[in-house]
């Protein structure tokens, strides 16, 4: 279980998270939605200790990771996999080595075993014959899927996805959603997914959390959230320009 307790985070004068509370239930998929630039990626980076809050606690299985040193934080991170919004592939390595990287670092598997897993994960995200390519030779959507394959390589207990389907065509979006649902179910994973795609949100989420002005203003099952009368929520789901969410 992951708990964020009263998280405050500012960059300079800009307050991004303002007393945010969120509990991510174990073995469930929690989807975080919210306006662009609202702090979703920043929130995700708090969960894995890439950003430390100005104030507040991040509890992973009861342990406050904001207090850990580099070495202990490393141990906690072994439970996690993460897909970055821009994939963050290592551009000095080809696709296969990118996916193999965590396996080479943390396991004693033979090269054949590793390459088997690499092919398996790449096939799962709908990629084949790209092993030898460099990240710079891939399209944006392909890069994202390689990032996804890398996040899944180690079979972590908790996976954080920053917009896994943004930039993919409708068919591929559906395929990735199915992949997330199946993997989550098969290994009873805890998943946190950021998504802008309303259809995907309700398809893969067991819980949906709406981030607005630095706090979670709405949290619940997809049905509960869809039935919400909160004007912010209503406007967001309808995608309407009229409402409390200001464009400027």
């Amino acid at each position: 279980m992951i708990q964020l307790v009263d998280i405050h985070k500012s960059f300079g004068k800009q307050k991004v998270l303002d007393g945010l509370n969120l509990t991510v239930e174990e073995g469930k998929t929690t989807v975080i939605i919210g306006r662009s630039g609202g702090g979703k990626s920043v929130l995700l980076k708090h969960i894995i200790g890439l950003i430390r809050p100005d104030r507040g606690q991040v509890l992973v299985d009861g342990e406050d990771i904001t207090l850990l040193n580099d070495k202990d934080l490393n141990e906690v991170r072994k439970k996690f996999g993460m897909l970055f919004q821009e994939a963050a592939l290592f551009d000095s390595m080809n696709v296969a080595e990118n996916v193999a990287f965590p396996l080479r670092e943390h396991t004693k598997m033979s090269n054949e075993e590793i390459m088997d897993i690499v092919r398996n994960r790449l096939n799962a995200v709908g990629l084949s014959d790209v092993e030898e390519k460099m990240p710079s030779e891939l399209s944006g959507g392909m890069r994202k899927r390689v990032g996804l394959a890398r996040a899944l390589a180690m079979q972590p207990q908790i996976i954080l996805f920053d917009e896994p389907t943004t930039g993919l065509d409708p068919v591929m979006t559906e395929a990735i959603n199915q992949l997330i649902i199946e993997t989550q179910r098969a290994f009873n994973l805890t998943c946190v997914v950021i998504s802008h795609d309303i259809q995907s949100v309700f398809e893969i989420g067991h819980r949906v959390a709406m981030l607005y002005e630095g706090r979670i203003i709405e949290y619940g099952t997809p049905e509960e959230v869809r039935a919400s009368r909160n004007p912010v929520m209503v406007q967001f789901l309808a995608g309407s320009i009229e409402g409390p969410i200001q464009i400027l």
Partner: peptide, 20 residues
């Protein structure tokens, strides 16, 4: 520097590999 601004250093850290 390039690794930093494209989050590759963060990606290392996330994979429990200490960037230093």
């Amino acid at each position: 520097g390039t690794m930093r601004v494209t989050e590759q250093i963060d990606a290392l850290a996330v994979m429990a590999v200490n960037p230093v």
